[in-house]
């Protein structure tokens, strides 16, 4: 990517961080005022109950002394960017990756479930798409079910899958992977069906003039023609798979993974832990998509479609 492409992206990130930084003051004003009063500072108004009548912003204006303090609370309502950065630095770089306090450890737990689920989902999606394109009955029957499957809230379904699989003795990686697969197969089905059907009548007629069989039509025309569509779907699929793995960790009291960290941070009043896990998940998703984009560019360039794709 060239510099001109990066600048707009940096501007957007900068604006988001500016809004975040500004929001820390009103969001934490009440907590900070309470703490400052306990530490001996004089607050206006003095009674904590009276302060509830003011918005965070008004309170901060009335007590400018607390403004810098809103950024250093140990248990803030909204952590400041630098607090999250410190938490991430400590849990990523200063802890052994095998430690339960390491974000790398938790990230790997989620990532391994994501990757297994992504592989299952993609395989299933491609097979279903081939079936839909080549079999009239599957064309009529599978697509409505695939669409219906995505209308069920995954948050409602995830605990059921985990509990039911647990009842028959399947625990650990696989139940989470199944939820990942459940979310990631759908974009692959949709993209591959479109891709396998992308050759036009003329290209199909050409193969007929060679008396090509269905097998040759698939391997020589339909499959290569579907590659750009497949990659577009894979990029959606892998982010969906990551979300699936995290959702799979949330309802079951999982002890490891990004989902577990988010829950722990929430339950034990450690917002920095939650936010670090959130950012960890976002960075992981971005890296996964970036890797797929790189493979996509290389593959399509090697296939001679780099100029158009």
């Amino acid at each position: 990517m060239n510099i001109r492409g990066i600048i707009p992206a940096l501007v957007v990130v900068g604006v988001i961080f500016a809004i975040w930084t500004a929001a820390v003051i009103p969001m934490n004003a009440h907590l900070t005022a309470d703490q400052a009063q306990r530490d001996g500072l004089v607050m206006t108004p003095e009674a904590p109950r009276d302060r509830q009548d003011f918005t965070g912003l008004t309170l901060a204006i009335k007590n400018p002394a607390i403004i810098p303090l809103t950024y250093t609370l140990t248990r803030p309502r909204l952590p400041s960017p630098h607090q999250v950065a410190i938490e991430m630095y400590e849990t990523i770089f200063t802890k052994a990756p095998t430690s339960r306090r390491s974000l790398v450890y938790h990230g790997w737990v989620t990532l391994s479930a994501t990757l297994l689920g992504f592989v299952i989902g993609t395989t299933l999606g491609v097979l279903l798409a081939v079936g839909i394109v080549y079999n009239r009955t599957m064309d009529k029957s599978v697509m409505p079910w695939a669409i219906t499957s995505q209308t069920i809230p995954i948050l409602a379904l995830a605990p059921m899958i985990i509990v039911m699989l647990g009842a028959i003795g399947i625990q650990g990686l696989l139940p989470k992977s199944i939820i990942s697969a459940y979310l990631s197969f759908f974009p692959v089905v949709v993209g591959m069906v479109k891709g396998l059907r992308s050759p036009d009548g003329m290209q199909l007629d050409l193969l007929r003039t060679y008396s090509a069989n269905a097998n040759q039509g698939f391997w020589k025309l339909r499959l290569p023609a579907s590659m750009p569509y497949l990659f577009a779907s894979l990029k959606i699929g892998i982010s969906a798979a990551l979300v699936g793995a995290i959702v799979g960790e949330l309802p079951t009291g999982a002890r490891a993974g990004f989902g577990a960290r988010m829950l722990v941070g929430d339950q034990y009043g450690q917002p920095m832990v939650t936010w670090a896990a959130l950012f960890g998940a976002a960075i992981t998703a971005a890296l996964l998509v970036a890797i797929l984009s790189w493979i996509e560019r290389r593959t399509l360039t090697r296939m001679g479609m780099g100029a158009t794709a």
């Binding site: 003329m202 290209q203 007629d205 050409l206 003039t209 025309l221 290569p224 023609a225 590659m227 296939m303 001679g304 479609m305 158009t308």
Partner: peptide, 11 residues
């Protein structure tokens, strides 16, 4: 058979 468009496979 030669069609109106070349219809070469881009890959």
């Amino acid at each position: 058979y030669v069609f109106q468009a070349a219809g070469l496979y881009p890959w």
